[in-house]
Design a protein around this nucleic acid. Structure first.
Lengths: 346, 346
DNA sequence: GGAACTCCCTGAAACGATTCAAAGGGACTG
DNA sequence: CAGTCCCTTTGAATCGTTTCAGGGAGTTCC
């Protein structure tokens, strides 16, 4: 109906005046605080509705909370992250909290800047997705504001953690390939050259899981790790290197789907067929992996579940229901597809 | 070195005390405001550094600005959006502004909620990416805070716009296919059933561009639009429908790459070959399109450029350098790949 | 019937910055 | 040398909300 530009946003005082109560009372209603009669509750709500009142988050933050949860997201292109975000958002649905994303980039510097920016904006809690920051920095942040770290394996007393068991995930892939009869299974690892990248990152654990599983299956001789990056270009160059080996591997386990795609490109260009000549597996079970023409065997982490739990842990901290730290480790599952099969002449 | 938890965050007053100046002076230094002597500038900066002072964004927002740019991002999985975000971020690099993303979902209701949440947090400006909100709502928001809308074709006096010329883009695809000899070119359109979705959305313009181009090329009889959704499932089902036609199209132009992927799946399962039996083209030139095994002909929009310009327009508004609205329209380019070729027996 | 509790509710003081009017101090002008 | 002007600096008010210490009005209990 009314379409004119509101000359001024209604404040808590406006509401208080209209409802004939004190601003403090309105504040209580706003926060569902204790000590409010139904009658006043009613009147205040009516006044808020009439004025179209919306609380000023920044002003609230000056004394109390901002009802904002900050999420550091390093790489917007990583198709796994939206799952996490949705998990977080769904868990926060119905609460007064609002998710806000800070694009953090991939370097410790940019991530540090973005995290600071979120802290400056007084978020009530922080979810850090696979942060490339040293542990001391993480703990320093966690002393300022409740923090949940997703995807880092190290434990800390300062913050909570949610991880996928990458050690197990890598094992699932090796077992799957070994069961098919492969003995020479190569692995593409993400090896970051930037200093300050900690060893508790998923890529390191995945490589370690690969190594352990190979040993467990008695395939120590077939261990072959190519350091590269989790990217299409990284997978591509690593695959070229592997295809040039005097004795080629019969299977390539890329530590991430994106890298596996690069492998597919290289294999495609080399004129080899998948899975007849070479098996390829990835990690993350991204939507790309599921596409018909690609059909990539991959490891699935339940991102939605992980995100939801991260949000839960964070709220527990914010609402002071818990004060000791927790590390939640989820088990991944293998999703076999057409990119893996028994090796040639097996 | 010092690792202990700072007992309290330094405030502007702490800085003022240490530097022996007034808080107002510190505030000026902070904002690079006029009327500050180099000497004081120097002393204040030193004090800020010594205390590790960081401005409290919420408190700043109470009177002045928050130095925060809010970005509404409807679908985190859309691989085109990261380009835009990066473009925005790069343009803001070096300024005091920080980008913050609000995950908006795909419905008008959730997008409206997220936008409100950003406004409640007093962002200085708002970039709305392909918002599914009615124009009146957009204008209402724009009267509260500077707004740039990306991807909507309608003009408004209240907000600025940045669009890709989808009419031209669709024409590029049709021309390309027609040049190859195709006459029966089908199009998959995104038809939203939700009420309140305006007709200035890209999908509508793309469909119109397809129609106009077909007529221009004298292929009116070959016009065949399948309403579906821009998603893998949507492309899949639309392709099934098209493949079941008594007279099959020789080329399918999906309005988005994701939908094109669905088409590929269906075609793959039907045992047809691309491009020998059928040509397929998409839109958006996502990373998936470039992958070797897929190699999808697509239309490229320069997202980085568009995002950067959106940020520029927004800053102009925030800094009051301009008060009349602008609509920037960028021209897309065609990226031909292996998924398109002359039709069978041509 | 008075003391002790409960409940609701309120006034005023924060929170950390920005803004604004005005004060102070030189340098320039006539 | 007084008057003007300009530039730097400051004190105090202000933004919208929460917090905190009480104030009043009923109840309950002995």
């Amino acid at each position: 109906m009314a379409a004119g530009p509101p000359p001024r946003r209604a404040t808590i005082t406006d509401v208080a005046n209209l409802a004939q109560v004190s601003p403090a009372a309105v504040s209580k209603v706003l926060r569902n605080a204790y000590g409010v009669s139904p009658a006043m509750q009613e009147r205040v709500r009516a006044a808020m509705a009439e004025l179209g009142y919306r609380p000023h988050a920044a002003a609230r933050g000056m004394r109390g909370q901002t009802y904002t949860i900050g999420v550091l997201i390093p790489d917007l292109r990583n198709p796994f992250f939206p799952e996490l975000i949705e998990g977080i958002g769904d868990h926060l649905e119905g609460t007064d909290y609002q998710t806000v994303l800070g694009p953090g980039g991939s370097t410790p510097e940019t991530q540090s800047r973005t995290t600071d920016a979120l802290v400056d904006r007084r978020v009530d809690g922080l979810v850090l997705i696979a942060p490339a920051l040293p542990r001391t920095r993480l703990e320093q942040i966690a002393r300022t504001v409740p923090v949940v770290v997703i995807g880092r394996h190290g434990k800390s007393t300062e913050y909570d953690g949610v991880v996928d068991d990458d050690l197990m995930g890598a094992g699932l892939v090796v077992d799957h390939l070994a069961d098919l009869g492969h003995r020479r299974i190569a692995h593409i690892e993400h090896r970051d050259t930037t200093r300050g990248i900690p060893t508790t990152m998923p890529q390191t654990v995945r490589a370690e899981g690969y190594r352990q599983a190979m040993e467990r299956r008695g395939l120590t001789a077939g261990i072959d790790i190519v350091p590269s990056t989790y990217s299409e270009a990284g997978g591509y160059s690593a695959a070229l290197e592997l295809l040039a080996r005097p004795v080629r591997p019969t299977a390539i386990f890329a530590g991430a789907d994106v890298a596996a795609i690069g492998v597919l490109n290289a294999v495609y260009e080399a004129g080899l067929r998948i899975p007849e000549d070479l098996s390829v597996a990835g990690y993350d079970n991204t939507t790309v992996a599921a596409m018909g023409p690609i059909s990539l065997t991959s490891v699935d982490q339940d991102g939605h579940l992980m995100g939801g739990n991260a949000a839960r842990l964070l709220l527990e901290r914010i609402e002071r229901k818990r004060d000791r730290s927790v590390l939640l480790s989820f088990s991944p599952t293998l999703v076999p597809r057409r990119s893996t099969a028994p090796p040639p002449h097996a």
